[in-house]
Design a protein around this nucleic acid. Structure first.
Length: 491
RNA sequence: CGGGAAGUGGCGCAGGUGGUAGCGCAUCUGGUUUGGGACCAGAGGGUCGCAGGUUCGAGUCCUGUCUUCCCGACCA
């Protein structure tokens, strides 16, 4: 293993891949495009899950679980939905293996062909709406507010750890409502849940917006999204929430009887975030020394490293360290005391830096004499000496400060990388250098959007919700426009 | 899926024109060390991605296949 990471300036993409592997987050497996999430990476995902799950429940949702396999016929029921996913589905055609008659391992038993093929879910709208038909008869059965934590499979051609894998972990919320207004409200509420989670916990500033028709989810009437800006100036969609109208209710014949006794189709939403958030986390905060984790997601917020010669000294240090561990844990802070004698302090320093542990406390013989510890911040790489008796008071405040400072830093970066383009030349130049978000006028047509994409690789990330109306002319066609939309190259 | 590159101990790599595999890091043992990836001495570990083929002989040549990386089209 090489000692140093490729730097972001040398090769951003290589930096990302090396970081994921060296920080022990994930690795590629023997299966094309499918990753192994390692314990340290999974611990971060678990923290993401736990906080989101709490927020979902606080907004009235419950978890359920639907099958991995979906009968092929379900997919033919909603036309635009099929169009969106057909090209990337894994299909189960047989249910049995047998020994190879030629003696080489096993082969698929041709006699075990399924009557109807099963699709490994790329998303669960179809099977969930097929089930909701049984659950819903009356307006009294509504709303249904359900989420599921699951894995899904999309047969992507080009994959990257966390950012795009053939199988990924996510949550998908699927709700059913009596009215259009209520469904739209739900989709907007969940967008807020995502935005506040990503900003407060992941310390990643996001733009809230709606997708253009061309970028909309397959089967949705409106797609709301949060968009984040990565350090290389490319945008990453961090979460989406869809207002599905009555499309799935109509496709799966899900009706309810109203108070007035009429039969109406149910209104739907779906919303999801995935392990891609891990990619956003890495690319927002990390530096050339490795991962930088916001304290609210760090598996260990503090690591304590003893520096010692001989057992006697270690015992004396351990006494101080264990006391600090108790004091910090009492405040709900996660601490690891790494007293392994199999690695040297310098090795540990580098390892925890690579893994993004927010605070490191080193205790050595000099500290024993002075009653101090060395406290090092991962985000700023600064060190200070703190009296042992002050640690319990200083650490929580410092963790808060790191959390805030990471967000502020990311926000400042985004602001510096947010531009306004008023001419095609200006626009092209900004996009060419991956300058970040570019606000520009657009005539509102999918044709223009596609053409801009062909010419520059930039897509409309969103129409920001907070947008102000402004008269202008489309950057490409010169046709009138009422507002600016946000363009960027995207992951 | 189209174009390019690559798969050799755990990791990173070297192995003109075919002749039975080597280096660095890591690992193990012993000793000295420990405030930013320690040092010395010794040791173990590879059917060269996989499957065929050519050949007296294949890491090396040929065919197929799988995986990874880069560039496109698609996408959370």
């Amino acid at each position: 293993m090489g000692k140093h990471l490729t730097t972001r300036a040398e090769d951003y993409s290589k930096w990302y891949n090396e970081l994921v592997v060296k920080a022990d987050l994930a690795q590629n497996s023997g299966v094309r495009g499918s990753m192994v999430i390692k314990p340290y990476g999974f611990a971060i995902w678990e923290r993401i899950q736990a906080d989101l799950d709490r927020r979902f429940k606080e907004t009235g949702h419950m978890n359920a679980y639907f099958p991995l396999f979906i009968p092929k016929s379900y997919f033919s029921k909603e036309a635009s939905h099929v169009d969106g996913f057909a090209k990337e589905c894994a299909v189960v055609t047989h249910y049995r293996l047998k020994n190879d008659p030629d003696g080489n391992g096993v082969v698929v038993d041709p006699n075990a062909k399924l009557e109807e093929e099963l699709i490994v879910r790329p998303t669960s709208e179809t099977i969930i709406w097929d089930t909701y038909r049984d659950w819903i008869q009356s307006y009294r059965d509504l709303p249904i507010l359900v989420n599921q934590w699951a894995n899904v499979v999309r047969w992507e051609m080009r994959t990257r750890l966390f950012l795009r894998t053939a199988e990924f972990l996510w949550q998908e919320g699927h709700t059913a409502h009596a009215t259009k207004e209520e469904a739209i409200q739900e989709a907007e509420t969940m967008l807020d849940v995502y935005a506040s989670f990503v900003e407060e916990i992941m310390a990643i500033p996001v733009l809230r917006g709606i997708k253009t028709e061309g970028e909309r989810f397959a089967g949705a009437l409106e797609t709301y999204c949060i968009e984040a800006l990565m350090q290389d100036g490319k945008a990453l969609q961090a979460g989406t929430s869809h207002f599905l109208g009555q499309n799935f209710a109509k496709a799966f014949d899900v009706k309810f009887q109203t108070k007035e006794g009429t039969q109406e189709h149910v209104w739907a939403t779906s919303w999801g975030v995935s392990t891609r958030l891990m990619g956003a986390l890495i690319m927002t905060h990390s530096d050339d020394n490795g991962l930088v984790l916001p304290p609210k997601l760090a598996p260990y917020q503090v690591v304590i490293v003893p520096i010692y010669k001989g057992q006697e000294q270690l015992d004396a240090i351990s006494e101080v360290a264990n006391d600090l561990v108790q004091q910090l844990r009492a405040q709900g802070i996660t601490v690891k005391y790494d007293d392994r004698d199999t690695q040297k302090p310098g090795w540990k320093f580098n390892q925890y830096e690579l893994q993004g542990v927010p605070l490191r406390i080193a205790i050595g013989p000099k500290d024993l004499e002075k009653g101090s510890v060395e406290l090092a911040r991962r985000d700023t790489l600064t060190k200070q000496f703190v009296s042992q008796s002050d640690v319990a008071a200083v650490v929580p405040a410092l963790l808060d400060e790191i959390q805030n400072s990471l967000f502020e830093k990311a926000l400042k970066f985004r602001e510096e990388r947010t531009h306004v383009a008023n001419s095609w030349e200006e626009f092209e130049a900004l996009i060419k250098e991956s300058a970040g978000f570019v606000y520009a006028h657009w005539d509102g047509t999918t044709e223009t959007e596609d053409k801009i994409k062909d010419l520059t690789k930039a897509t409309i990330r969103c129409i920001p919700i907070s947008n102000e109306e402004e008269e202008g002319a489309c950057i490409l066609t010169g046709k009138p426009s009422k507002q600016r939309v946000v363009f960027a190259k995207a992951y």
